[in-house]
């Protein structure tokens, strides 16, 4: 799981084009949105694309996405439970 979370963090960095950020700078439990990393609604749409392209998980409603993207921990668990690839 630790290795997976590191991979996921790198994927987040690539998907959101966070140039120069390192995976270890993103905390497992810190909120990704608002006061945490500071992501917004457009990032949430980018992360939905990431889930579909990398894991075959389709999310139609962006509001559902925001729950999944609460933190890296929540996101990693959701992916492991729902991944199609």
């Amino acid at each position: 799981m630790e290795e997976f979370k590191r991979t996921l963090k790198q994927q987040i960095i690539d998907a959101l084009n966070l140039q120069g950020m390192k995976p270890e700078e993103i905390q497992d439990t810190a909120p990704l949105f608002n006061e945490g990393l500071g992501l917004d609604s457009i990032d949430s749409l980018e992360l939905i694309v990431l889930l579909e392209r990398n894991y075959g998980i389709k999310i139609e409603d962006p509001r559902e996405g925001r729950k999944v993207f609460e933190s890296v921990n929540v996101m990693a668990e959701y992916i492991q439970a729902n991944r199609k690839k």
Partner: peptide, 9 residues
């Protein structure tokens, strides 16, 4: 399919 919105914006 599902596309990145950023280039569109």
């Amino acid at each position: 399919g599902t596309l990145n919105p950023t280039p569109f914006i």
